[in-house]
Simulated scan of single mutants.
Amino acid sequence: MLKDALPMKQGETRAGEALRQLLENIPILQIESIEAQAVAGDWRPDLIARLLVDGRQHLLVCEYKSNGQPRYARSALLELRNYVAQTASQATPIFIAPYISPAVRQLCEEKGVGYLDLEGNARIAFGSVFIERMVAEKPAAEQRELKSLFRPKSAQVLRTMLREPARAWRVTELSEISKVSLGHVSNVRTGLIDREWARASDDGLVLSAPDALLDAWRESYTSPPGERLHFYTPLHGSTLEDAARGALSIDDGTGRAAFASFSAAQWLAPYGRTGTHYFFADEDGLRKLKAALKLAPASKGENVAVIVPKDLELLADTVEPAPGAVCTSPVQTYLDLSIAGERGAEAADHLRRERLSWPR
């Protein structure tokens, strides 16, 4: 049964119930009690579960955190390990949170700490007992939080940082360069630090795990909202390429366009040509492309695809690897390739090796 040595907070109560439900299904275990602990003075775990395993007593020393992100988990694991080492040799440390990501699960395993989350993911091992359970889906709250980190305004901040991943950024600098409010930059900063994708230094915010950040962005990425248009051009080969570069390089203060997806990858990290040419453009940029490439609408047999994105800041995140060859940035090109089917995934992997490799 669940026994309270002290009144438990709501989160700890849920943690205790989840632990009890997990353990009561293990035939060789008998639950004697699950008790809340005093919090005054020296650090104490939130819960201690007293078990009988084949007639022998064993303790589960548990710490509950309302946020299971790496930033909070790491300190909890340290406290748990220290407590068990100093006061409870016949005990197993357990970290509990509403949701524990795969990265934190791996961290728990590396530190020799069991884990349980309120979504049902669990791994507890001691003696002859081994419990492991995996839930495939991320909780809705976690998915919303991740998506918010990669929405257009937040993405402007991330793209700015990934252009100079070793740089330490002040919040005011990021706000000015990415054209995003100070409040929004601060929210992004918190999200990055909580996941240990960035750290705060004396000089500012520094990306500490750009690869992990890019991995998560890729997993959450969907094609930018906007109008998708398909055309046919009679131009081919170098004639088409020269005409496109001429249109993209026109700087008359109106209209922006850029090579995108496979077409951008040809300039950034050539991998394999496709029969279709890809562009991002605003309305005026589209008019320039139509004129330069002699585009005609096509319902089939198209060889030019243009996205007019709602987020026009995508057209500010460009590079020019050769005169007139204005391309979406390596990060944006990588993301677009990653959702472009099997060939796109292969081209994305090649681009990442060539242009998006950072010291670990």
Rank of each mutant, 00 (worst) to 15 (best):
L192T: 04
L192G: 10
R50T: 14
I26K: 08
K3F: 10
Q106F: 06
N303V: 02
A265S: 15
R163H: 10
L356Q: 09
D202A: 15
S154L: 01
F279Q: 04
L174W: 12
R273N: 09
A243R: 06
S75I: 08
L59E: 13
D282T: 07
L78P: 00
I131R: 10
L149H: 00
G341M: 11
R20S: 09
L293F: 02
R195Y: 01
I131C: 08
Q21L: 12
I31Y: 04
K288D: 04
L6D: 00
I94Y: 11
A125N: 09
R256F: 05
A122W: 02
D317V: 01
L6M: 07
E119I: 10
A140L: 13
F280T: 03
V104D: 05
G237A: 09
R44C: 05
T13G: 08
V308C: 12
L78W: 13
I96P: 12
I307R: 11
G127C: 05
R189P: 00
P359H: 06
R287S: 14
L107V: 01
K300F: 15
S175C: 05
G191P: 03
W43D: 02
A322V: 08
K111Y: 12
A216N: 04
I124Q: 02
D211V: 04
P152A: 06
G11Q: 07
D317S: 01
D46N: 05
S249K: 13
L240R: 15
R167T: 07
D194Q: 15
A141I: 09
N121H: 05
R355C: 11
D42A: 10
E137Y: 02
V61A: 12
V39A: 11
P309C: 12
T160Y: 00
Q37N: 04
A325S: 07
L29M: 11
T333N: 04
P165H: 10
P102H: 02
V129M: 08
V306R: 07
C108S: 11
P225C: 07
L356V: 05
T222Y: 11
A88N: 14
R159N: 07
A40Y: 07
L78G: 11
L77I: 13
F126P: 10
K179G: 13
N121E: 10
D317L: 02
L6V: 14
L118V: 04
A281C: 12
R163K: 15
A325R: 04
A260K: 03
V171E: 12
W267Y: 15
T276G: 00
A340N: 12
